[in-house]
Simulated assay, not measured.
Amino acid sequence: MVDKTQLTYTAEHEWVRVEGDTVVIGITDYAADKLGDVVFVDLPAVGSTVVNGAVVGEIESTKSVGELFAPIDGIVTAVNGEVVARPELVNTDPFGEGWLIAVSVEALPAMLSYDEYAALVGE
């Protein structure tokens, strides 16, 4: 089980887990719940450059289409192929098997703590 208090967050409902000079990125359970049943995930290719604040992917549900924003600058080092094949993982395990991409980084921008994010979404 992932300790959500050890992650950082964006106001766009992404979570970030730092692993050395790489970060793993996904969307929060709040975002997954708001989207509804996820049916399709489009992610950037490994080797792609991502820019903080830019759209890097798309998450489609039975209710709507949501954009995935890069919370950092860097190079995509891994894409979760399992979530592409089984998009429902975004709903069932957004902090675990439902992770989306990994990105190599040089520096992290300021992000929200768990408590700050919880206050943002009213939890």
Rank of each mutant, 00 (worst) to 15 (best):
G57Y: 13
E12S: 15
A11G: 14
P109W: 02
F69H: 11
G96K: 11
P87W: 02
G96D: 13
W15K: 01
V2P: 04
F95E: 05
D21I: 10
L7C: 10
A31K: 12
V121Q: 10
L7D: 11
V50H: 02
V65F: 12
D29R: 08
T92E: 15
G74F: 00
D73Y: 00
P71L: 01
E14C: 03
V65S: 09
V83R: 03
E60G: 06
S104P: 00
S64N: 12
R86K: 13
I25Q: 01
E106R: 12
V103S: 01
V38R: 10
G36S: 02
D21R: 14
G98R: 06
Y30W: 15
E60A: 12
T28H: 07
G36P: 02
H13M: 07
D33L: 09
P94L: 06
V103Y: 04
N52S: 14
L112D: 02
F69L: 13
G26K: 01
E67A: 14
V79R: 01
F69E: 05
F40C: 10
I25K: 01
V121L: 08
T8D: 08
V39H: 11
P71D: 06
E88Q: 11
A102E: 12
V18R: 15
A32D: 02
T28P: 06
E60M: 10
V41H: 10
M111F: 07
V50E: 04
E116P: 07
A78L: 05
I25A: 03
W99V: 00
V90F: 11
F69Q: 09
S61V: 12
G57Q: 12
E82Q: 08
L7H: 04
L68K: 12
T10N: 04
D93N: 10
V50T: 05
G96A: 15
G47L: 11
T10P: 03
E14H: 02
I25N: 01
A54E: 15
E19D: 15
D93P: 02
Q6F: 07
E12R: 14
V46D: 07
T22C: 09
V55T: 15
V23E: 07
E97C: 08
T77P: 01
P44H: 00
K4W: 06
K63I: 07
D42R: 09
G122S: 11
D93M: 05
L43N: 06
L100A: 03
L35W: 05
A45L: 08
V16D: 00
A78P: 01
S113E: 03
L108Q: 08
V16N: 01
S48D: 13
E12T: 15
D42Y: 08
L108K: 00
L89G: 00
A85H: 12
I25C: 06
V55Q: 15
E60Y: 11
V103W: 04
P87K: 00
L112V: 03
G36Q: 04
E60P: 08
V76G: 01
L100Y: 06
D42Q: 13
A70E: 06
Q6S: 15
G96C: 13
E60I: 07
A107I: 00
A78H: 08
S104Y: 04
T22W: 04
Y117I: 00
Y9M: 06
A102C: 12
E67Q: 14
D29W: 12
A31C: 11
P44W: 08
A119C: 05
E67G: 10
A78R: 08
D115W: 04
A32Q: 14
A70Q: 04
V84G: 00
H13W: 09
A118W: 02
D21H: 15
K34S: 15
W15G: 01
